[in-house]
């Protein structure tokens, strides 16, 4: 560092130097070790999942990726139902979370009076601090019965018979299913998306907004034509990040998704995600069994899906921050 700039006399800096001669390399070494450790750990986990799941891929071929059979009795396994369930529930979550996060973020940055800003901000952050299992229990004991009693029966009656979109609203009112899983997931990702939206909205130069207000734009017009376009790419990145979180969520989903390894287009039908299937089946999968290998392969697939989503989100967020 430039000693003269920080105001420390040059002589003093030289006098201090010997003390760092031994400790500094050690410190730098430790920093290197920490950095490399993460890389090695990640590599080992990927390698373990891939190596462990390889026999399943050899047995079933590439069809494993889309086969909809998951039959532990005949040992015919396929990832189709779980991949579909993982993406379906996560997409529902994002569709529900997106408008909610927009609302909260814009309210916090533009509308909320000073004294209200902090409590709401803290409440949103606290939502993120609730453990997954609590969401699961709350979903199971409170949300599922409510949906089964008040949401599903009218929707099944009104929308079920319609052509095409009716398929989304058919089946018995179980309460547990894709929709419920998506709703719980939405609540879980709202804090993350909101936090990033707030950051993006706060980075909009005040001059731009004030100019817009100056030419007579309304709050909505400023929001619609200035703030959102300015941060669009980063916002898409934030949504992808939320999507990434929703993909891997395990306990809460296991409680409310209904755990059926059957393919169904209905929002109300029970389904399964990759994470929930692993949580359900892992304890009884014996070593060296095709089931355990298939579960590890499922884990690898989830890893790849999450990696792609995360990589996309990073590219999008970063491209904006650079410009």
């Amino acid at each position: 560092m430039d000693a003269t700039l920080s105001g420390t006399p040059a002589g003093q800096v030289l006098a201090q130097k010997p003390t760092g001669r031994i400790s500094d390399p050690i410190f730098v070494g430790l920093l290197w070790a920490s950095g490399i450790f993460v890389l090695i750990l990640l590599g080992l986990i990927i390698a373990m999942l891939f190596e462990g799941g390889l026999p399943a891929l050899r047995e079933f071929g590439i069809q494993f990726l889309w086969s909809t059979s998951w039959n532990p009795v005949t040992e015919r396994f396929g990832a189709g139902v779980m991949v579909f369930g993982t993406l379906f529930s996560a997409v529902i979550a994002v569709i529900v979370a997106l408008p909610l996060s927009f609302g909260i973020a814009f309210f916090l940055t533009e509308i909320a009076p000073g004294p209200l800003r902090r409590p709401i901000g803290v409440a949103v952050q606290l939502l993120a601090a609730i453990p997954s299992i609590i969401y699961g229990m709350w979903g199971f004991f409170v949300v599922v019965p409510l949906i089964a009693a008040y949401v599903q029966p009218p929707l099944i009656e009104w929308l079920g018979p319609l052509p095409v979109i009716g398929a989304l609203f058919q089946g018995p009112p179980l309460g547990a299913g894709m929709l419920t899983a998506g709703l719980i997931l939405a609540l879980m990702i709202v804090p993350f998306i909101t936090a990033m939206f707030v950051e993006v909205l706060e980075s909009v130069p005040p001059m731009l907004k004030e100019s817009a207000y100056g030419v007579g734009a309304t709050t909505y017009e400023v929001y619609r034509n200035v703030s959102v376009p300015y941060g669009r790419t980063a916002m898409v990145g934030a949504v992808m990040l939320g999507l990434g979180r929703a993909l891997g969520e395990t306990m809460a989903v296991t409680f409310v998704i209904g755990n059926a390894t059957r393919m169904s287009a209905s929002l109300f039908a029970p389904g399964a995600t990759i994470a929930s299937t692993i949580a359900n089946e892992f304890p009884e999968a014996s070593m060296g069994s095709l089931k355990l290998q298939s579960l590890l392969q499922l884990g690898f697939i989830l890893f790849v899906i999450s990696f792609i989503v995360l990589a996309l989100s990073r590219v999008l967020v970063r491209s904006k921050l650079k410009s």
Binding site: S69, W70, N259
Partner: peptide
């Protein structure tokens, strides 16, 4: 592979 119903 349960033919019908929901799992908990």
């Amino acid at each position: 592979q349960w033919p019908t119903g929901a799992g908990a």
